[in-house]
């Protein structure tokens, strides 16, 4: 029995349906990311879990308890908002202790819990500061401590990093993941940044137009994207014009070379695709003409033309000489890692 169950959730605002039949089971202590472009419904699902939006259809269960009709203040949930929603009239300690205070926790117990939380986020000396005296990253850490102080059953993070500088974003996301693992708290993290989602999640739900397109571990999402949208949204993807020779054995032909996929090709329209780092150069194979070269330090990035398609190929920077624009190269049909992408109906 999983800890958090979202059971066939639907949500409509007026006549527009923003979430279609969304189901998800989350294990205790799992870190799940909802990834998708803005307007894909990921925040709406999160707000339904928090209780700010009521589902049009479906149920939400936490630890076996149906919370679908409970008000947010009865759900024992922690939430961190995008634009640090610290209470400006309360100092750091009062902010962190807010949830304990409204729950009637005695003062001394509250103080020790607040100190513990400030220690956890690495800001033990900031207790008396007011929010405006903190940097954005510090405010968001305090917001995390505030959410965690009452020992919530589930932690919800609504794009908590998107208002921060790039550098702080990386260090704070690692800190969030560390704290989450240390406390073993079930967490849902909403983001539109694929790198964030890939780097800290146990599982990712990629959402598009109110539908969960794919749910899986980061490697699954990246290496075996289920749909064209997932493949295109997560990482860079090259598409090729290939011809199916045999669906059952997975044999296709690309620019005169045969490619063995060693798995059956699903019915319907599919595309042959490959990640930039999944393409390998060889002496013979699929011909490609170099149209540009970028030297990125650890990586060499080649832009090339295969048939009618422009593609990108990344390879580690080795001693091998850098190709020049106009060079004619070949892609290996055997060594390259090929993907199959289903088209939307």
């Amino acid at each position: 029995m999983s800890f958090l169950n979202l059971d066939h959730l639907q949500k409509s605002f007026g006549s527009t349906q923003v979430v279609h039949d969304f189901s998800l089971s989350v294990d205790k202590g799992e870190f799940i990311s909802f990834l998708g472009p803005s307007g894909c419904g990921k925040t709406t699902v999160l707000r339904m879990v928090a209780g700010f939006e009521e589902p049009s259809e479906g149920r939400i269960l936490i630890d076996g308890q149906d919370v679908t009709r409970l008000r947010p203040n009865q759900r024992q949930i922690g939430m961190v908002f995008q634009a640090y929603a610290l209470f400006p009239n309360l100092n750091v300690a009062e902010n962190v202790g807010f949830g304990l205070k409204v729950a009637g926790v005695p003062r001394s117990e509250r103080a020790s819990r607040v100190a513990e939380m400030l220690e956890l986020i690495g800001l033990p000396d900031m207790a008396a500061r007011f929010p405006w005296q903190l940097s954005g990253g510090q405010q968001q850490r305090v917001a995390l401590a505030r959410a965690l102080a009452p020992r919530p059953r589930v932690l919800l993070l609504d794009e908590p990093l998107s208002a921060l500088d790039a550098k702080i974003r990386v260090s704070l996301r690692n800190q969030i993941r560390e704290i989450q693992q240390q406390l073993g708290i079930t967490t849902i993290f909403v983001t539109h940044d694929q790198e964030e989602a890939l780097s800290i999640s146990d599982r990712i739900v990629v959402m598009h137009r109110g539908i969960a397109e794919q749910t899986g571990t980061p490697p699954q999402i990246y290496n075996q994207p289920a749909t064209e949208f997932v493949a295109g949204f997560v990482g860079k993807l090259n598409l090729f014009d290939a011809t199916v020779l045999d669906r059952a054995s997975g044999l296709v032909s690309l620019a005169g070379s045969e490619i063995r996929l060693n798995r059956p090709i699903p019915p319907g329209r599919v595309s042959l695709a490959a990640r930039p780092e999944g393409l390998v150069l060889a002496e013979t194979g699929i011909p490609a003409e170099v149209t540009g070269v970028e030297f990125l330090g650890s990586v060499q990035r080649l832009r090339a033309r295969v048939g009618e398609r422009d593609i990108v190929l990344d390879r580690f920077n080795t001693d091998a000489s850098l190709p020049q624009t106009g060079d004619r190269l070949h892609l290996s049909p055997e060594l390259s890692r090929w993907l199959l992408v289903s088209h939307e109906q």
């Binding site: 759900r75 908002f81 209470f87 409204v102």
Partner: peptide, 22 residues
């Protein structure tokens, strides 16, 4: 800001507590 009300609510505060404390 809407977030203040929502943050208070999700932390377990009643409407009265939100008004009195925030």
């Amino acid at each position: 800001r809407r977030e203040w009300r929502e943050a208070a609510e999700v932390l377990g505060a009643s409407t009265g507590q939100y008004w009195r404390m925030v």
